[in-house]
Write a protein that binds this DNA or RNA. Structure first.
Lengths: 185, 185
DNA sequence: GTCTATACGAAGATAGAC
DNA sequence: GTCTATCTTCGTATAGAC
């Protein structure tokens, strides 16, 4: 298919970013991982690596946001599913792959990475805040609770990864569940 | 002084890691930032870049841990001071410099970075858990609450940085203060 | 302990043939 | 749309003079 190579490069880039970070991922790495033909790189990404990074993080952000929000879910479910998703991801990849948005955000100097990551975080925060207010939580508390959950889960993903244990993420998930339950009661 | 160059290189490395991440920081960058003489690199760090990274993160870990724990503080104070420290750091550096342990942990493939970061996180978690149990919180809740606080603050640092606003970190700090207050009451 | 010079490879990017 | 070849720059590392 026409876009097969492009898609393969983007998804390989995302995987490598999650694994080693943006700065440690080279163009050649993406080529090798995706099996994409060497000569077609600048055909698909005339803007070079910056374009590849930017599009990959944008794509990852859309994916994470879509996984985060399900219109039928309440706030507690959104948070719990988000945490569980990354617990599964860490187990699936033997603790190699973290959150792509985190990887991008830490490369603060690269605007092509940090910019799309900021957008995605903002989108997730907005969705969770909305869900909280619809459940009766007033601003500014709704925004605070949304920030707490996103911060805690993102941080816990990193801790779980470095410890090679799901315990930090599970502990965080349980504490958040308790907080959300008491607020929404 | 004999170790002046060495120290300068290490502290410059830490600053650059916080700013752009480990993968995007080159040896030459560290040299330029520290003003260290080009020819003495392998005199001070015969193990090359791996040694520099490893020692820099170890040093940063000790610094963060020392800042985190003060023997006279209770758990709520430890958490609050940790959050406030990074709020000040973000303001001081115009949101350029995040947590060095985060930067190291995200470079999961580099054991010389991820290893020392994991040690530092573990040390901080142990100190906070101890402080909680001494305040009467039983295990395993003490461990969970410690994990929640560290995860949330570390995650919030990243969010605040990408948004160029202290709001996420402040919101997280306030929510954590509330949780700790209710548990310790 | 610091300097210059340089080797060596990796990485990003481009050109031109097919 | 893909291939090979190549150019340039950068990054790590080493050698040898001072």
């Amino acid at each position: 298919m026409a876009t097969g190579t492009r898609e393969a490069m983007l998804s390989s880039a995302i995987r490598l970013f999650r694994e080693r970070g943006v700065g440690d991922t080279s163009f050649a790495d993406v080529l090798a991982a995706s099996g994409a033909p060497r000569g077609s790189v600048y055909h698909h990404f005339p803007g070079g690596k910056k374009q590849l990074v930017s599009e990959a993080i944008r794509s990852a952000g859309g994916y994470v946001a879509a996984n985060f929000e399900r219109s039928t879910d309440g706030p507690a479910e959104m948070v719990d599913r988000f945490a569980r998703f990354y617990i599964r991801e860490l187990e699936r990849t033997d603790y190699r792959e973290g959150c792509p948005l985190m990887a991008a955000a830490v490369a603060g100097a690269k605007e092509e990475a940090a910019g799309p990551a900021a957008n995605a975080f903002s989108q997730i925060h907005g969705a969770l805040t909305d869900s909280l207010t619809k459940s009766g939580v007033k601003e500014p508390r709704a925004s605070s609770l949304a920030t707490l959950a996103i911060s805690a889960i993102e941080g816990a993903i990193v801790l779980s990864r470095t410890e090679k244990s799901t315990e930090p993420l599970n502990q965080t998930r349980e504490e958040l569940a308790q907080i959300y339950a008491s607020v929404l009661a």
